[in-house]
């Protein structure tokens, strides 16, 4: 059992390494001949150079902070309005179609609108990233709340819980798994849209550094930034899943006391 696990972990590392070696070989031997396609070694060298410069960390933290701030705002708004819409059938009937229209607008087409209103500012970045993250959180909260089983609602009434108690003890916990899914999707979108606004023109962050590297014809640096965005996405996602599990199990152990 333990052996197969180590084995599969080994295989998991195997594939990327082989890919990297193939990549390096194909460039050294000239099989792939693109003008601006850097080799892994060049990318690694560029990374070491960047890692010693302060700007790199400034850009990195800028993007991460914007992503998180936007995500937190979206979480508060999304869960709040999600509850409002999900808990009341008349409200749901009265606004949900509008929500569906707004959330299916291609978010990228909203960026120019944002640029016109806010210019290339920090506010633009946060507003756009928040807008993108808001919809999955809101929609998942709405459906989580609305999917609360009628049995649970009946029990709440028979036990004669107050409305607040019903929301807090029955509806929110039963909607929690779906809300968490929305939060995870929202986090990813928040990061992507932060990077998009940086690429398009906000003069800060990973996206900005990336587009600078492109314009300065530094493909190796550009690849570093691409990999960094990948790593940020991967880590944020992993961190979220980790803490979501902690929340769920903390809830369980609190129950036990």
């Amino acid at each position: 059992m333990a052996q197969t696990k180590t084995k599969s972990r080994f295989i998991g590392w195997f594939a990327p390494i082989i890919l990297l070696i193939l990549w390096q070989l194909s460039i050294v031997t000239g099989i792939i001949r693109f003008r601006y396609f850097p080799s892994p070694v060049a990318v690694a060298q560029a990374f070491l150079r960047l890692a010693n410069s302060g700007r790199f960390y400034g850009n990195l933290s800028h993007t991460v902070i914007v992503t998180l701030v936007a995500w937190i705002i979206a979480t508060i708004l999304g869960v709040l309005f999600g509850l409002l819409i999900g808990l009341s059938l008349p409200v749901w009937k009265g606004v949900m179609a509008s929500v569906d229209v707004l959330r299916s607008l291609p978010i990228i087409a909203l960026v120019p609108v944002g640029v016109i209103i806010f210019g290339f500012t920090l506010r633009l970045e946060i507003v756009i990233a928040t807008y993108a993250a808001l919809w999955p959180i809101l929609v998942n909260t709405v459906s989580g709340v609305r999917q609360t089983r009628s049995e649970l609602l009946d029990i709440g009434r028979i036990i004669r819980m107050s409305r607040v108690e019903r929301v807090w003890k029955l509806i929110l916990p039963s909607a929690l798994p779906l809300i968490l899914v929305g939060l995870r999707l929202g986090l990813g979108l928040s990061l992507v849209l932060a990077i998009v606004t940086e690429i398009v023109g906000t003069p800060n962050g990973i996206g900005y550094a990336l587009i600078n590297a492109e314009q300065a014809l530094h493909p190796a640096q550009m690849f570093v930034y691409i990999l960094v965005t990948g790593v940020i996405g991967y880590l944020l996602n992993g961190l979220f899943i980790f803490s979501a599990r902690r929340i769920l199990s903390a809830e369980k152990s609190a129950e036990k006391n």
Binding site: S8, G12, P219, G230
Partner: peptide, 29 residues
């Protein structure tokens, strides 16, 4: 062994924001 071999790579590529890849693709292709 498909999952164990490719999961890390797939996971990483999947999490790569398309926005970041666009400039690279533009400069290469």
């Amino acid at each position: 062994w498909g999952d164990s071999a490719f999961n890390p790579v797939l996971d990483f590529l999947r999490n790569l924001p398309a926005a970041a890849v666009v400039p690279a693709a533009a400069i290469i292709l």
